[in-house]
Amino acid sequence: MTRPADDSPHVLVVEDNPGDVRLIREAFAESHLDSSLAVATDGEAALDYLHGRDAERPDLVTLDLNVPRVDGNEVLEAVKTTPDLASIPVVVLSSSSSREDIEETRELAANSYFVKPVDPAAFISLVRRFVETFAAVGRLPLGEYETPVE
């Protein structure tokens, strides 16, 4: 399903690293996708945002696993087990390439898992690729889920 061109996606970025937030913003800007980003710097703030009555429901959540107060897996589980939120696509952006982390997020129903590249240009390119794919076809690339998890 192709998203209408005038349908500006709203994205919740759950990330405590200001540098990564800046790179994610750059990736969205480079994608030329008219979108709005809200940032939660910890898991508790993310859950407050998602359950807030006045907050705009995101079309997409990018989620770092290692955030303070409530970790990313707990946020993911809360999103995917809450009927009003379960349909929101969640992309995990993590520095961990651990098979255990990848498998746990798959079991918690994340839509995609990507290991954050260390190189800023590669990080921006990765985020831009999944954002553009999501905008064009309404689905996310699988990332690490494309590799069989043993």
Rank of each mutant, 00 (worst) to 15 (best):
A5C: 08
A5R: 08
S8C: 14
V11I: 15
L12S: 07
D16L: 00
D16H: 04
G19Q: 12
R22S: 14
I24G: 06
I24D: 11
E26I: 14
A27P: 03
F28M: 13
A29C: 09
A29D: 10
E30F: 05
E30S: 10
S31I: 08
S31W: 05
D34C: 09
S35G: 09
S36D: 14
A38W: 10
V39M: 10
A40S: 08
A40I: 09
D42M: 02
G43E: 12
G43N: 04
A46N: 05
A46P: 07
L47D: 11
L47V: 03
L47E: 10
D48Q: 13
Y49I: 01
L50Y: 03
G52H: 08
D54R: 07
D54A: 10
E56D: 14
R57W: 08
V61K: 04
V61E: 05
L63T: 09
D64R: 01
L65Q: 01
N66L: 12
P68E: 00
P68N: 01
R69L: 09
D71F: 06
D71S: 06
G72V: 05
N73I: 14
N73T: 15
L76E: 01
L76Q: 01
E77R: 08
E77F: 12
A78F: 00
V79K: 01
V79I: 14
V79S: 04
K80I: 11
T81G: 02
P83C: 05
I88F: 04
V90C: 05
V90A: 04
V90W: 02
S96K: 04
S96G: 05
S98D: 15
S98T: 02
E100C: 07
E100V: 14
D101L: 07
I102C: 04
T105D: 06
T105C: 11
E107T: 14
A109R: 15
A110M: 03
A110R: 03
N111G: 08
N111F: 03
S112E: 07
V115R: 00
P117H: 00
D119V: 11
P120G: 01
P120A: 02
V127H: 03
V127K: 00
R129T: 10
F130L: 04
F130G: 00
T133A: 11
F134A: 04
F134Y: 12
A135S: 12
A135T: 08
A136M: 14
V137R: 13
G138P: 04
G138Y: 11
R139A: 11
L140Y: 09
P141T: 01
P141M: 02
L142G: 15
L142Y: 14
E144M: 13
E146A: 10
P148Y: 05
P148V: 06
V149I: 15
